[in-house]
Design a protein around this nucleic acid. Structure first.
Length: 153
DNA sequence: GCCAACGTTGGC
DNA sequence: GCCAACGTTGGC
């Protein structure tokens, strides 16, 4: 079992949007970065991920989701109406992949990025590394635990 | 294979 | 809106 963090802009898709979804499940499309894609392909059913809100007034960890379907081709890449369209990826030769996630819960409060930066237990967390732009990344069990503790403080 | 130019991410 | 940092592209 592995832990992950997945970024989403809440204006586009928030933890509340996921919660409101039929079956509380959604496919995580639109990842167009190779490193992030590779991490998604390493995800396994049952893995847990933090749902992180980015590019918004208060960025931070908003909730927990479960991976319920492992990587499969991201069909938005060949949807002419999609903003994520990428002609390099085709049904017979997909380049981009997505997973399905299911809502588990919202944290009791949003744990803001600013607080994560203050927690010495997270000093080496990938999310906090200088210039980090990855939208999908692994989280260590220690980091996972530390963030869940912050939820209650 | 190098690397400059460009586009994007994302915090502030 | 600004800008630092990074990934990608494309000329050579």
């Amino acid at each position: 079992m592995q832990y992950w963090l997945m970024k989403s802009e809440p204006d586009v898709f928030s933890i509340d949007d996921l919660k409101a979804r039929p079956g509380k499940t959604e496919h995580w499309d639109g990842v167009r970065n190779f490193q992030a894609r590779n991490f998604m392909q390493a995800m396994r059913r049952g893995d847990l991920a933090f749902f992180y809100h980015s590019s918004c007034p208060e960025p931070g960890v908003a909730g927990v989701v479960e991976i319920v379907r492992e990587a499969y081709p991201d069909f938005s890449a060949w949807d002419p109406k999609s903003a994520y369209r990428d002609a390099r990826s085709r049904p017979d030769k997909p380049v981009w992949y997505m997973v399905d996630v299911r809502y588990k819960r919202k944290l009791k409060r949003l744990v803001p990025l600013a607080e994560l930066r203050e927690n010495r237990a997270l000093a080496r967390m990938r999310l906090l590394a200088r210039g980090n732009r990855l939208s999908i990344m692994p989280v260590t069990p220690e980091e996972w635990k530390a963030i869940l503790e912050m939820e209650l403080s």
